[in-house]
Design a protein around this nucleic acid. Structure first.
Lengths: 330, 330
DNA sequence: CTGAAAGCGCTTACAG
DNA sequence: CTGAAAGCGCTTACAG
């Protein structure tokens, strides 16, 4: 079991020499082509593989097969717990299917997203997972060229393409129901100013439902900021300065709710007694340190499996399927 | 600007044909070997590159150069905010240096860690970043073979190797000072049962300092659990059942503090009035939703830079440097 | 200043 | 049942 990684890793040639066969034979056995090969040869090759510590070199394999086992995930802001949960579950699912994940943090910037897309193409990645992508020129080209992409959370800019996400309109409506069924009538909603389709749908679902239930006015405020935390803080400040504190407040993400909570605390407004906060995401941390927050729970830990399934489907040529994941009221 | 990604990406040969030169010439220009080449040729090749939309194929380059631009990060539990922060900053630093990060979630398991190490070697990665690694057979082999590794947070099992982390003994001592200077004398500490060297150092620093200050007894409790959250919850339960609530409690991670907080809340014990909690990590979320927690703050967002610097140093042959990162009292 | 040629490690028809 | 040979895309001494 001698291995000399630093000097030169064992190649097919090394194994072939050790076993006294051709590299073609070793290659076949490494790849499970065992049906036509004598048991004796197979045993000898297997032994040689163990002795020299052979591991296939993926650069050679990729070059020859013209396809790698690499899959790129492009996501904005890895520090957001939502992204971390999606990344973790996808990584596990990819690994189980024999793939390796490259993680790229786009910071929600089209230019960085494009830089990464080009870099990933250079790496000959086999597929792309775009989490909350932004529209960008290279992405558009990739889609047009039929590159294997699965979109997560935000739908493809083009409208067509594989997609995994939740029913955001329904999530918004469910949040409205939570507030309404708690007897609260003066309600508001906090959103980012540069709202994506996700934000828009949640907002629409929320407002439509509240109106259907008989509310005349839904108080709205939005803000820009480096993070949803800051957006929540600023938006609630703006809203309360204008309309006073409502009885209930829907935040289109848990992070926005955290921001609103901080402002409430600094204003000596007691949450949830004075104002009930409802978020969307269902961060697992909530039950530990944010018991005051009710939230629409999304099982991001379970996104990995369907993402990989759709990717597989895309590879097979069926490019437009989608998986609408369930959400629940926590 | 025609591109036909799906059919066949442009290769050096494509460009060479378009420019009417040899692939060797194109290769040189792509790699910035411009000193010996006529301006006219360079311009023609550059134009051809743009026209056919050429991007170098890294499989070919890796095979030939026998080294890739891929760097593997192996970390336990990507959902832990500490890991997310380290991963995010490292990814950015690697990207800036022209590398691509592969992220592997080892779940703190030696067998998975080994599986990943082997898989990464197959990918011909250029370096390994082991965040909170566990001892394992393959890791041992890698170290023995002189593989380019940077260890983060937990020191290399062998003792030798590049390392980025904080002074955990001092962090523990600083936590002791926080409690002591707040006038608290009955103090305890919560740790995971299967403590790593990180835990041991923080514990030691804490206890030694408290004793030096004149405390007779430091109350200790540990617990096993799937996460630090659960460990905190169970450990504080155990400690208080045995010794009652202390005035101050050091938790060797913020997550453990969160767990302790939940138990306190369920027991109607008011934090921090009845018992002051001090954590270690300084999760940015604290100031938003856990203002009751004081913490030793570690700038994980700044680990990326020194990690990449050390990796570079390792590549150059200097394998034993270390960077002790600062921490502060928040 | 530029090109022909070898070779990195692998796979796969093809021939035997 | 097994091997010789071509070729994936790239780099780099070497020759001119």
């Amino acid at each position: 079991m001698t291995r000399k990684q630093r000097s030169t890793p064992a190649s097919l040639a090394t194994v072939a020499a050790a076993a006294g066969v051709s590299i073609a034979t070793v290659s076949r056995i490494v790849n499970g082509e065992t049906r036509r090969a004598s048991a004796e040869t197979i045993a000898r090759v297997r032994k040689a593989i163990a002795v020299v510590g052979y591991q296939p070199n993926h650069a050679g394999r990729t070059l020859r097969r013209r396809e790698s086992r690499l899959v790129a995930m492009l996501a904005p802001n890895l520090e957001n717990p939502v992204m971390a949960a999606i990344a973790a579950s996808t990584e596990a699912a990819l690994r189980a299917a024999g793939y390796v994940m490259i993680l790229c943090d786009t910071h929600d910037r089209p230019d960085l997203q494009d830089e990464y897309l080009n870099a990933m193409r250079s790496q000959v990645v086999r597929g792309y997972i775009m989490v909350a992508s932004v529209p960008s020129p290279v992405l558009k080209d990739f889609v047009a060229d039929g590159a294997p992409i699965v979109f997560v959370n935000r739908r493809p800019p083009s409208g067509r393409g594989a997609f995994v996400g939740i029913d955001n309109i329904k999530a918004g409506a469910d949040a409205a129901d939570m507030l309404w069924s708690a007897g609260l009538r003066r309600c508001g909603v906090l959103t980012p100013a540069q709202g994506s389709s996700v934000t828009r749908d949640r907002l629409k679902g929320f407002c439509d439902r509240l109106r259907a239930l008989g509310t005349e006015d839904v108080y709205k405020a939005e803000a820009t900021g480096r993070s949803h935390l800051e957006i929540g803080y600023e938006a609630v400040q703006r809203l309360t300065a204008r309309d006073g504190w409502p009885e209930g407040l829907m935040c289109v993400s848990d992070q926005i709710a955290y921001g609103a909570y901080r402002f409430a605390r600094e204003s000596d407004v007691v949450i949830p007694e004075r104002c009930m906060l409802v978020g969307i995401d269902g961060n697992p941390l909530n039950r530990w340190i944010a018991p005051w927050l009710r939230s629409i729970e999304i099982m991001y830990e379970e996104f990995g499996q369907p993402i990989v399934e759709l990717l597989d489907q895309v590879w097979r040529g069926g490019g437009n399927a989608e998986r609408i994941m369930p959400h629940s009221v926590a």
